[in-house]
């Protein structure tokens, strides 16, 4: 039960050229800068774009192979899609939007509505909303309805394009847990959000300028991101914690001071280059200072990526020169500091 993709797709002047990609079970995150072909990849798998050349297999069936004239249209593929712009049917009630795919599969209206209702409950849309039209919903509700609609017909593959962009704080955690154990056996998650990658993805595909720059498990890709954009993106640190106003208490008890107020469970994200390292306790304005044990240093050209163990497992990017000056080596205890303004709080 995998998606095997090899070939070229052109869409609106952009070309995606994939030299052979296997997308296995679980959540695979597709990351890359804007215009690198993430959405095109998803659309080709769904059957909304044709391959120019190459071959696409879903669960062992060839669904697109221009050389032998095979093209299985979108409605005959077992691929569901959550679009970035939701695309709910404005003339149908919420419940009938979700029942749409079930009805097309030949399920009776009453049964389809019952199943649709169950799915809406799972994504956290209460029954008062079921008889409304999409125009009356908030952005977050629309997004959840779109996810429920795509999941209701139980597709083998679910493609989710930028899922959490417009969801409110409460819905985000719920959607994440829903996507993590989605009934679809394979989820292709197109995303810009380091928290999605950290919390959901089992595997990663990095696209750069229309080609696959890196692929593999999250650890493998993080070690070898394949392009500058991905190196920065994957270098981002994601730390869970409990927020109270401008303080976030992390799992180890270390309290981080942040620039924006929040309450409840949050993720604090910050780029690897925002962490500075010192041999001695630093003086100055940085409020977030802690003593950390140095685990490992990876040198890549002029950049050194320093992995710190407890109290916070974070990555720090520093120049190779300062790494040499600090005489960093595994097992050393160093001081790390972080400016509050560099921290982003994600609910």
């Amino acid at each position: 039960m995998t998606v095997r993709f090899e070939g070229r797709v052109t869409r609106g002047g952009w070309t995606l050229d994939v030299d052979g990609l296997d997308i296995g079970e679980g959540v695979t995150a597709v990351v890359g800068a804007n215009g690198t072909g993430k959405t095109t990849l998803g659309r080709a798998v769904a059957g909304l774009e044709r391959l120019e050349r190459g071959r696409l297999e879903i669960s062992g069936n060839v669904v697109d192979d221009p050389a032998s004239g095979v093209f299985v249209p979108a409605h005959l593929r077992t691929v569901g899609m959550v679009f970035q712009d939701h695309r709910l049917f404005g003339h149908l009630r919420v419940i009938d939007n979700v029942a749409f795919g079930l009805r097309r599969a030949g399920i009776e209206r009453a049964a389809a509505r019952r199943q649709a209702g169950e799915m809406l409950e799972r994504v956290g849309v209460d029954s008062e909303t079921w008889s409304k039209r999409p125009a009356a919903l908030s952005g977050g509700q629309r997004q959840r309805v779109a996810v429920a609609r795509a999941l209701a017909p139980e597709p083998d593959v679910l493609i989710v394009d930028e899922p959490l962009a417009s969801v409110d704080a409460a819905g985000r955690a719920r959607l994440r847990s829903l996507l993590r154990d989605a009934p679809a056996s394979q989820v292709l998650l197109i995303t810009h959000d380091p928290v999605d990658v950290a919390t959901l993805a089992r595997r990663l595909v990095v696209l750069d300028a229309g080609t696959v720059a890196s692929r593999g498990s999250v650890a493998e890709v993080t070690a070898s991101p394949g392009c500058e954009w991905a190196a920065t993106f994957l270098g981002a640190n994601v730390v869970p914690g409990q927020a109270h106003r401008t303080s976030v208490t992390t799992g180890s008890g270390l309290v981080l001071t942040v620039a924006s107020e929040a309450d409840g469970p949050v993720y604090v994200t910050f780029p690897a280059h925002a962490v500075t390292l010192h041999r001695d306790r630093p003086a100055g304005s940085a409020r977030n200072t802690w003593q950390a044990e140095l685990e490992r240093v990876d040198v890549d050209g002029e950049r050194a990526r320093v992995h710190l163990a407890g109290p916070l497992a974070v990555r720090a990017d520093i120049t190779r020169r300062s790494a040499d000056e600090l005489e960093l080596r595994p097992g050393l205890t160093v001081w790390a500091s972080l400016k509050a303004t560099e921290l982003t709080v994600v609910t």
Partner: peptide, 17 residues
């Protein structure tokens, strides 16, 4: 044609769409 595409991913053929 965005809604037509969404319908296709939900299993609707050309006439049903």
């Amino acid at each position: 044609h965005e809604l037509d595409e969404a319908a296709a991913t939900l299993g609707a053929g050309a006439w049903a769409t």
